[in-house]
Write a protein that binds this DNA or RNA. Structure first.
Ligand SMILES: [Mn+2]
Ligand SMILES: [Mn+2]
Ligand SMILES: [Mn+2]
Ligand SMILES: [Mn+2]
Lengths: 221, 221
DNA sequence: TAAAAAATTTAGATTTGTCTAAATTCATTT
DNA sequence: AAATGAATTTAGACAAATCTAAATTTTTTA
């Protein structure tokens, strides 16, 4: 039923999906930046995806996945996140080490494999970064997360996602003992640089820059 | 240290390794048949592998992996067999269903992943087909197997490997309740067609054709 | 609204992996 | 030893995925 897609096509499909979640439409330069490729290469790929009838695309006007395309994207995301869960829960990878490997594993092509893996892992609903895992029909739990920058002083929250894979950020978080599941309370906000002071589990108090706070998503508790 | 190899290169390297185990040297047509590709395509690839200094190759004279090439082949075989073990032992695939998926998984590129997988599986020494799994240094247990055609009447043995992945064979074996670990005794041999009569676990008695017997390797018990 | 700037596409090239058909080399047979 | 046939390589082509540089379109600015 679904045609087969190459690894390059799948990487484009997934990246388009994530970008169109933000604003509905995606533009060539943004996708090229996300994939660390060139705008001209993106244009080439857009034509292929349009020819395969999974992308709505008019030259110069932006583009977005149609419902068939979204279904395919969700299948790739399902595989990516299930493998991440496997790597962390079964193989004891750190949650900040799994992305690269999952980026490869998500392209393994076997429905049976992924459904058996899902069962083996006992149908997890969230990956190690707090992102919801689509089920085999593409449905996933809504993620009730708020950006740390949006909390009020004295609010308590638990970190459930880190929105950036940047190398330096993960290093900083590890050093500060901050990770998925960390409980914290907002102590103060400084308008000058939009930094925020937090207390972890009623113990350490520390400052987070705006850049760091922006990368942290929490659920309020 | 080791350059990176593409999926196509890795598939060629692995196939060359298996063929050169038989007779030391490999020929273009044989490799093309094994990979279901064309002799001209094989020649193209041989030049690449020679340029990467892992293959001894003189035009028209056959070819074989040098020690560097064998090391790379064993790394791929290690991954293939560990994934097969994982699929059967953890995901409950049938031992006759794993080959295709392992053919993809063997190309995932992460030393950390494969060493952690090995530990998770508790360092298995044989894959679901009875083939030995190389350790991270490329060493593997010698396989003490004998072909079923070589046993004498009244000898008892346990099946530890099936040497062919042919579709029809696996179907036949499943139907006959024969698999890895099956214990049997040789009852009679017929010179006419080289068929052999066996009894499984002192229960069923059945005839196996020469073609089937040739594909079965056993250890004597 | 016309120029300038930004975004995007097109043109043309390169690498990888594959193929078919033709040429070459090697081995076997008269 | 020449002819035949098998095995192998070469020549030339093509699709996929990328790139750079140039052209085009759209948007912004003056
Ligand atoms: Mn990927
Ligand atoms: Mn994730
Ligand atoms: Mn393979
Ligand atoms: Mn095997």
């Amino acid at each position: 039923m679904q045609p087969n897609f190459t690894v390059a096509e799948e990487n484009h499909i997934k990246a388009i999906y994530h970008l169109q979640q933000l604003s509905g439409k995606v533009f060539t330069n943004d996708l090229a930046a996300a994939l660390e490729t060139r705008p001209a290469s993106v244009t080439d790929m857009l034509k292929k995806l349009k020819a395969k009838k999974i992308l709505h695309y008019e030259p110069y006007q932006g583009f977005y996945l149609n419902s068939e395309g979204k279904k395919i994207a969700l299948g790739i995301i399902r595989k990516h996140r299930l493998w991440e869960y496997f790597l962390v829960e079964k193989l004891h990878f750190g949650w900040d080490e799994v992305h690269e490997v999952a980026e490869q594993l998500e392209h393994i092509n076997s429905k049976k494999l992924i459904d058996k893996l899902d069962a083996f892992l006992d149908y997890p609903r969230f990956d190690p970064h707090g992102d919801p895992i689509p089920d085999s029909n593409g449905k996933m739990a809504a993620q009730q997360q708020v950006n740390l920058t949006q909390l009020d002083v004295n609010q308590q929250a638990e970190i459930c996602a880190v929105a950036s894979q940047a190398r330096g950020l993960l290093e900083l978080l590890k050093h500060s003992n901050i990770g998925i599941g960390t409980k914290l309370e907002i102590k103060r906000r400084f308008g000058f640089d939009q930094s925020v002071e937090i207390t972890i589990k009623n113990q350490q108090t520390m400052m987070l820059s705006h850049q760091v706070a922006q990368a942290l998503f929490v659920k309020i508790i």
